[in-house]
Design a protein around this nucleic acid. Structure first.
Lengths: 336, 336
DNA sequence: GCAAAGCTGGAGAGCGCTCTCGCGGCCGGG
DNA sequence: CCCGGCCGCGAGAGCGCTCTCCAGCTTTGC
């Protein structure tokens, strides 16, 4: 157990201060209707005994826990790769929860079976709300929880028509801006390496590419990867084979772009002279590739913060907008 | 609030199944002293009502919460860099807690003030134990919590003589192996770029370098970085200036090694012909540097798993060894 | 100076659960 | 056939807290 020495209870404090439990409770919870001298006496007793309110007892009666869950789909290729998505979200969420004095409970949704676990967990009143990150495909979890009365906000537009509020970055706009940059630079044969098409990020970035390209007179040249370096290299070789004369490629993630850069080098193409490359994410590594990678920055930490902010409002019973989309931003370096 | 529909209570289930609360509790908690038919009736009632035991009420009486805290020192340069340390630990911890059916509560120790917060949190009986990751300097938190009767396990040997059990990787041995590798390859002037000397990882890796080098007849050449790429590049330039004839460098992290590689290239040194480079960590990136980086792999995920395993045992009241050290392993690629 | 109004603090119920205790029914042994 | 033992279930206390009610006291207005 390790409970160690018995923790003092309200009762003990009340006894010591010579008041009732109710008064101690009032003081601890910052009620104003307590005379200053009594207040001081109580606070001293609290101090001396090292009293800390018992969480379970408190939330049993208040029906709130002051903690919030963040659900991460464990097996995602993205989550644990070095694109810093996962740490970024956590950091942002953490920042926001810290000021709200809430705690973060992290849940890995490693398998379909764990969906039940998460559902149970939320239903057990463990947390006041749930943030679901990086939804893969049409995940039923957010909708289920919402139906159960649990406040839920998703990170990333859920696939399918879901009424669950979400926070996302403007992938479509970012991709379009990247393609526009290439067009403006006079590139004629602009290919793309898309992300997995069962993830919103993959879908949207491809959509942005397509839309923008359609606006110019160029045709689209598409290969699909899975956001990993390896897949980026493979896709790049594929593209080079499909159209040896391509002079630009928009890659849906920096990691894949890193792989593509390697493939391009192996194929004897110079970047950006022969082929311009633009990535997506602006991970740390992008500054250090050879050549440094032009890319589209997405505000990951802000995404996490916004996610938390929305959920907190929702959990407070406020109305929130059905979605929030954060802007992306082109970062021009040497590769395009 | 968002509590939504009223969640059914034990009482409701008992009523529906026509038994007492106690019996429902027995069934839910898997007691064997319940007649099979009654058991089935109860389970059906549970199913139909969608009953989930209230966490607060349960832990109020059992004095256990089934959750475990992981404390991360937020502002660490290491934690949120792309060395994957943080995600690796979390993943390992998560895996182990999942099989134990415990939940992970993540706490960022962003400031000194948050130490109080964490202390209060643990004292409030929120969690059954605390894992403290990557202790900076002589952090008083683990000792304080232990004194309070909270089970604590640290990741990384705490500085100062602390009685708190810890799990660490064999940094000294890994660093020594790296230096040995360089010596065996006939390198004569072996420098090192050390990590920050207020972190155990930084200290131990330097110690390993020193110890091994003393065994040969070579003298030590030391520059200190802070585990970031930038600092690696700066340190490398410094070393080159100190001893232009150095022919090898052991770098205390892959990220710094990456920076060093760039500095070496800028200085016109070939790797490994002119200067051999060995890193530490074996992050994903190490396979993709130019040339691919020889490095020392540390089992981060295993570290997380072991951390969780030890804490779970401790929280179960078992005796555990005062420390566990996991082996590191040389990964030879092209840079040395 | 007295009643009405305003505060402050105490008593007590109850949140949903677990667990001890004890009662009744069934078995086996004498 | 009767009694002791055991097994399966229910009654009830109580975990530590919050919050509603109300009592007692002070203040205010006429």
């Amino acid at each position: 157990m390790g409970t160690g020495r018995a923790r003092p209870t309200l009762e003990k404090v009340a006894l010591r201060a010579g008041v009732s439990r109710a008064t101690v409770s009032r003081v601890v919870n910052g009620s104003t209707t307590v005379a200053p001298d009594i207040r001081d006496t109580v606070l001293r007793a609290v101090q001396e005994l090292g009293y800390v309110p018992n969480h379970a007892a408190r939330s049993l009666v208040t029906q709130r826990t002051n903690s919030i869950a963040l659900v991460l789909p464990e097996p995602s290729t993205r989550i644990f790769s070095d694109d810093q998505f996962f740490p970024g979200i956590i950091r942002g969420v953490g920042q926001e929860l810290e000021v709200a004095e809430k705690q973060l409970v992290l849940m890995m949704a490693s398998s379909a079976a764990s969906h039940d676990r998460i559902e149970q967990y939320a239903m057990a009143g463990h947390v006041d709300g749930v943030m679901v990150a990086s939804v893969h495909g049409a995940d039923p979890l957010p909708a289920t929880l919402t139906r159960m009365g649990v406040p839920v906000v998703c990170n990333g537009r859920p696939l399918g028509h879901s009424a669950v509020p979400y926070v996302d970055v403007d992938s479509v706009g970012g991709a379009a801006a990247a393609v526009r940059h290439l067009v403006n630079a006079g590139r004629q044969r602009i290919a793309t390496i898309a992300g997995p098409q069962d993830m919103v990020a993959g879908i949207d970035r491809l959509a942005g590419y397509r839309t923008e390209l359609r606006g110019s007179t160029r045709r689209s040249i598409v290969a699909v990867g899975d956001f990993t370096r390896e897949s980026g290299a493979v896709a790049m070789r594929q593209l080079l084979e499909d159209d040896p004369r391509l002079d630009a490629v928009f890659v849906a993630s920096d990691l894949m772009a890193h792989g593509a850069l390697g493939a391009l080098r192996d194929a004897g193409r110079r970047v950006p002279e022969d082929v311009a490359v633009i990535g997506f994410d602006d991970i740390e590594l992008a500054r250090y590739t050879e050549p440094p990678l032009t890319t589209v920055r997405q505000p990951i930490v802000d995404l996490g913060r916004e996610l938390a902010r929305q959920l907190l409002r929702l959990a407070d019973g406020e109305e929130i907008e059905p979605f929030v989309v954060l802007p992306t931003e082109m970062v021009v370096r040497a590769s395009a």
